[in-house]
């Protein structure tokens, strides 16, 4: 069984936010307005935050998405198992099961789970832009990055139809696919020959807030020498 992981090289990352837009479009994440953004209603599965990292004089721009923890604090507290850790290590959210209590959003130390305060809204002209592979979340449920899980399912189906095993390049989340600085690498952490596994062993590798015991599968590579 694969253990999907993502490595982000902060030394390469330029903070251009292409990943942010790619994620938004890929996953039908609705747009904000100045008012909603100011009231904490900005919907993002992936965003840039200014994180104070050890050894850096100023805050670094850190692309922050669901850290896909192996010990996720969010899944423990869900009263209905709407969020759970799937066998491949992806923290999934089952929208029809979610009651919208927002306990998971509060338990997550990374604050990466977002809640649908209102029904998602696109201008009529923009509705066809939505990705039919990803559902539209109704109002009142929590959502978060799934490592573009729909792409895994599609890739697996394509590979099976072609009569082969899934190859490393078959399944790449939208953020990784677009990263112009090639700062993001995605793959199977359980495969010792994968690039992510190699990078995860780099002396620059760290997991954010790993002291909390969350065991994230998003691994950052430190900036600087």
């Amino acid at each position: 069984m694969a253990r999907w992981g993502l490595v982000i090289d902060l030394d390469r990352c330029t903070g251009c936010q292409a990943c942010v837009v790619a994620c938004k479009h890929e996953n039908n994440v609705p747009f904000s307005t100045p008012e909603t953004a100011r009231g904490g209603r900005l919907m993002t599965w992936l965003q840039l935050v200014a994180a104070d990292l050890p050894g850096r004089p100023t805050a670094s721009a850190l692309p922050l998405m669901c850290q896909q923890c192996d010990r996720p604090p969010c899944t423990d507290v869900c009263p209905t198992s709407a969020t759970y850790l799937n066998p491949e290590g992806i923290v999934a959210q089952i929208y029809p099961r979610c009651i919208g209590c927002r306990y998971c959003t509060n338990a997550c130390p990374y604050a990466v789970k977002v809640f649908n305060w209102t029904a998602p809204d696109w201008p009529d002209a923009m509705a066809p832009m939505r990705n039919p592979d990803v559902s539209l979340r109704p109002k009142g449920v929590v959502e978060t990055c799934t490592f573009c899980h729909h792409r895994l399912i599609a890739a697996r189906e394509r590979a099976r139809a072609a009569g082969r095993e899934i190859a490393p390049d078959d399944y790449v989340p939208a953020c990784v696919a677009t990263c112009p600085a090639e700062a993001m690498v995605f793959g199977d952490l359980s495969d010792p020959h994968s690039e992510v596994a190699a990078l995860a062993g780099s002396p620059r590798a760290f997991r954010w807030m790993e002291e909390l015991g969350t065991q994230p599968k998003v691994i950052y590579l430190r900036e600087g020498e």
């Binding site: 423990d76 507290v77 869900c78 009263p79 209905t80 198992s81 709407a82 099961r97 979610c98 009651i99 919208g100 209590c101 927002r102 306990y103 809640f115 649908n116 109002k139 009142g140 449920v141 929590v142």
Partner: peptide, 28 residues
């Protein structure tokens, strides 16, 4: 708590699909 739910229509999920590791369920 019901007022605070995003989906009060699904409140019964707590009983139909309980997850006993959640302190909310201990509360219930």
């Amino acid at each position: 708590v019901v007022l605070d739910l995003g989906r009060p229509d699904r409140a019964l999920n707590v009983i139909l699909h309980p997850h006993f590791r959640s302190p909310l369920l201990w509360d219930v």
